[in-house]
Design a protein around this nucleic acid. Sequence first.
DNA 1: CACAATTTTCAATTACTCCTGAAAATTGAC
DNA 2: GTCAATTTTCAGGAGTAATTGAAAATTGTG
Lengths: 192, 192
Amino acid sequence: MTEIPAKNADHAEGDASSLDATQEAFVAAWGQMAGAWGISRTMAEVHALLYISGRSMNTDEIMERLQISRGNASMSIRALLDWGIISKTHRRGDRKEYFEADQDVWSVFRSIVRERMKREVEPLLAALFEIRDDCPPPDSAKGHAQTEILDTKRRLDGMLEFLGTVERLSHRFAGPSGKGLETAAKLLGKLP
Amino acid sequence: MTEIPAKNADHAEGDASSLDATQEAFVAAWGQMAGAWGISRTMAEVHALLYISGRSMNTDEIMERLQISRGNASMSIRALLDWGIISKTHRRGDRKEYFEADQDVWSVFRSIVRERMKREVEPLLAALFEIRDDCPPPDSAKGHAQTEILDTKRRLDGMLEFLGTVERLSHRFAGPSGKGLETAAKLLGKLP
DNA sequence: CACAATTTTCAATTACTCCTGAAAATTGAC
DNA sequence: GTCAATTTTCAGGAGTAATTGAAAATTGTG
């Protein structure tokens, strides 16, 4: 973390007076946000590097610029491919695989939203539906006032409705089709 | 984690055939989502307990039901207060402090969005603005083609514009005023 | 097919974050 | 003010996630 690759060692953090330093700073800033997006720091850094450089790179190039191990690079690249925010390319006469980042920021955001909904919200929704189904029926008020049971059900339903709405919206605007999210944002921006 | 309070030991996970078991299951499900919201598991569990029970509780009650230490309870409660999704109450003739959860799910969501924007997006935006300002001017093309510098700037700007839009929207719809987010969601749901 | 280049896997290590429990600080009643 | 009840803090321990590095698997070429 405090270790800076030799070629940039003469630049303090935040100093971006050369192009490389600018890119370095961008990678670092993006890496710090990793937690917020629910991805590991290295994943974020690899993506940032590919995004800001605007070209494709192979594993060795990425390893060297980020000073990470081969294993880490391989895992992070694989994960980014799974998330759908970088893609493989090839170069004639070169056996190595190259990777490039999606240059459309909205599309990146869409992929992240989609993936996180799938991993986090959908399982929770499923669990909550089950919990509601297993909730004791109001007439079996053995020791509990009926209102207590009904209130709990009502609160469960409140949460379910909320998550359901979020889920529906995400399908609509972050789904595989078109520029949904950007459109939504623009519409909202124009509202009364 | 695998330890279940004695009073519920006869219920397998997912079995919610008593009211307590239902609440227990809800707390566990909500706790699992903690990571997704960017809060610790205990924080999520405390909130879930207060939300689903619908009443106020003191620290000891929370400690016992969640089987956590006093320190952990104190920290988690404090954090939830900071996030603004639970509040303090008092009972006449009782020196203990009681806590209760906001029962409006949309309002909870709004608080979380607001807090995370403040902690994560705003600092990133600030960092990116600085990075762009320190970016070498296009005419100082010492060794770099001018286009390279301009392209990097363009990508930086793309990211800045995106984050700026997100930031503006969050202020508008998750800001301190009114039911913004719910309204936005309903509007979006009705779109063509 | 054999071989070298390249990628993937994974056990061991390292770095973090979270939690505990007891000590210190605070609070309110008398 | 004194004292007991209550809350907060924090150093150390426990548990989790990320990273390495080298061995295994895969891939493509001649």
